[in-house]
């Protein structure tokens, strides 16, 4: 059952028939993908299914070979990370890319510092960072001037997410945000992910952990061998069905978008 577009409103980010090859390897085959404002879309799939390639295409790290890239209903071309940021798409990668020797504010504004003439405007940056953290109801940080080195894994994830949200972004893509976290910290980060969506952002969550996925996701998109196996509402499926989608590309009761024989694939 492909999700009904009228029920979800228009997707802010929509990919249609995306193809991407690295040399002879056809990694993404006719992938359709959409993210909706105010919703968490989980992107699931086994290792090598093409999740990372897909988000790197969205983030402008890899150019797409063919297919349509629509943002807010308009066709756009994304040539690099800067283009993606300009549209309002931010990606939080798994390794976070924070500088340990800088504090929270410095990390959040890294590369986009606010200045008055040539002097860094520390007070304004700190004020804005504090506001963003406040809007996300972050309660785990002691001070915005704490060095990132002194933060726990969950706090680092929080800072990385806040950094992505700081720039009035519209789509936030999170790559395995809970992979290295303990139970309590996972809860905090998932709650934060939910709050992002509740504030009207389109959130794409990549995760291997189906418990996490079912806890926060509104929609689930399953990739199988570079093709979209299904895009369903989370409340319409149960965990075993998603596991089947991830491992075999199909499951009973869910209409798969794959051709009947996966092995033949799509001749692109």
């Amino acid at each position: 059952m492909t999700a009904n577009a009228t029920e979800n409103g228009t997707p802010i980010l929509q990919l249609r028939g995306i193809n991407k090859s690295f040399g002879p390897v056809h990694v993404l085959k006719q992938v359709n993908f959409a993210a909706y404002p105010g919703q968490v879309t989980a992107l699931v799939g086994d290792n090598g299914a093409g999740k990372s390639t897909l988000i790197k295409c969205i983030g402008g790290i890899h150019p797409i070979d063919s297919g349509e890239f629509l943002f807010e209903g308009k066709q756009v071309t994304v040539h690099g990370p800067r283009d993606a940021s300009a549209l309002g798409i931010e990606i939080v990668y798994q390794d976070l890319a924070l500088c340990d020797n800088l504090d929270v504010v410095q990390n959040m504004f890294l590369g986009r510092e606010q200045t008055t003439s040539i002097v860094l405007d520390e007070a304004s940056m700190e004020e804005r960072a504090a506001k963003t953290l406040k809007s996300l109801s972050v309660r785990t940080l002691r001070s915005t001037r704490q060095l990132v080195a002194s933060l726990s894994g969950g706090q680092r994830q929080t800072v990385a997410i806040a950094k992505a949200v700081l720039w009035n972004s519209k789509v936030v893509i999170l790559d395995e945000p809970t992979a290295a976290l303990g139970v309590a910290q996972t809860e905090q980060v998932l709650a934060l992910v939910r709050r992002l969506a509740d504030q009207g952002l389109a959130v794409v969550l990549i995760s291997h952990n189906l418990v996490d996925v079912f806890q926060v996701a509104d929609r689930i998109a399953a990739l199988y061998l570079g093709q979209l196996a299904a895009e369903v509402k989370a409340k319409d499926v149960r965990q075993p069905q998603v596991v089947e989608l991830i491992t075999t590309g199909r499951t009973e009761g869910v209409e798969s978008e794959l051709p009947t024989s996966v092995d033949e694939g799509v001749t692109a």
């Binding site: 390794d95 976070l96 890319a97 500088c99 340990d100 020797n101 410095q106 890294l110 590369g111």
Partner: peptide, 15 residues
């Protein structure tokens, strides 16, 4: 400082 702390993070931040 950012480049000295984490060159990869600095690169991704557009530095």
């Amino acid at each position: 400082y950012a480049t000295g702390g984490n060159a990869e993070a600095a690169r991704r931040a557009g530095i």
